[in-house]
């Protein structure tokens, strides 16, 4: 992935830069809104990381200008702690995801990958398939190895999200936001419990597991390697 980070705080920028390079990504850095806008418009980036608060031209202004100019590169906003309105304003300006500072690098990396991939594959298909597992979105029906599996509505939503991100790492907070609409950290084991139920239904009675735990990061659905 080729990533541009527009961030005025050099410490955060170098933390992200170093972390992503270690994970094999190509990273450019712009330290103010004007430079960032020029670089983003010119370079072919897979994804942009934009700080919400920048001196001069702020994050929302950059993304609005880019979208106005027809640049559709996915954008992940970085926002300050507890700023609930930032998320809304970010999405309205054309941002695709957001992350509250401070954040873990695994979380950022997983989200960037999901964003970069989403921009290439449209969400049009109605049947998702991974190995012998098949999810028919119109019939709301799940079949593995020819056997129909009965899932609860929330388990179905969870499975759909995992299947759409097959092979990727999805973090706990990504699942909370995208599957449950929770933009906060619950005090109980919501994700773990539902993952465990889903595993019990689609993995337990079959030869190979599809849902894998990625230590320290989250989960990933893919065929056994």
């Amino acid at each position: 992935m080729k990533i541009l980070i527009i961030e005025d705080d050099l410490e955060t920028a170098s933390y992200v830069d170093k972390g992503l390079r270690e994970r094999g990504e190509v990273v450019d850095h712009a330290s103010n809104g004007r430079d960032g806008l020029l670089q983003a418009a010119g370079g072919a980036y897979d994804v942009l990381i934009v700080d919400r608060m920048l001196p001069g031209l702020d994050g929302i202004g950059i993304v609005k200008t880019l979208r106005g100019a027809g640049v559709q590169t996915p954008v992940l906003f970085l926002t300050a702690l507890g700023e609930i309105d930032d998320r809304l304003a970010g999405f309205e300006s054309g941002g695709d995801d957001y992350l509250v500072k401070p954040f873990a690098l695994e979380e950022l990396h997983a989200r960037l990958k999901a964003l970069a991939k989403r921009s290439k594959t449209p969400l049009a298909e109605t049947t998702l398939q991974v190995g012998g597992l098949q999810l028919d979105l119109l019939k709301r029906q799940v079949i593995r190895a020819g056997r129909v599996i009965d899932l609860q509505p929330q388990e179905l939503k969870l499975l759909e999200y995992l299947m759409r991100h097959v092979g990727e790492v999805v973090t706990r907070s990504m699942l909370l936001e995208k599957v449950w609409g929770f933009h906060f950290d619950p005090q109980t084991t919501v994700v773990e419990t539902h993952i465990s139920r889903l595993r019990g239904k689609i993995d337990r009675e079959f030869d190979s597991a599809l849902i894998h735990t990625v230590r320290g990061s989250g989960y990933s659905l893919h065929e056994a390697l």
Partner: peptide
């Protein structure tokens, strides 16, 4: 600690918001 701060800020944020804004 950050989670406690986050919750506090979020409560303060909600209290400062005006009804029907969003």
């Amino acid at each position: 600690i950050l989670s406690t701060f986050g919750s506090l800020l979020r409560i303060a944020n909600i209290e400062a918001k005006s009804r029907s804004a969003s």
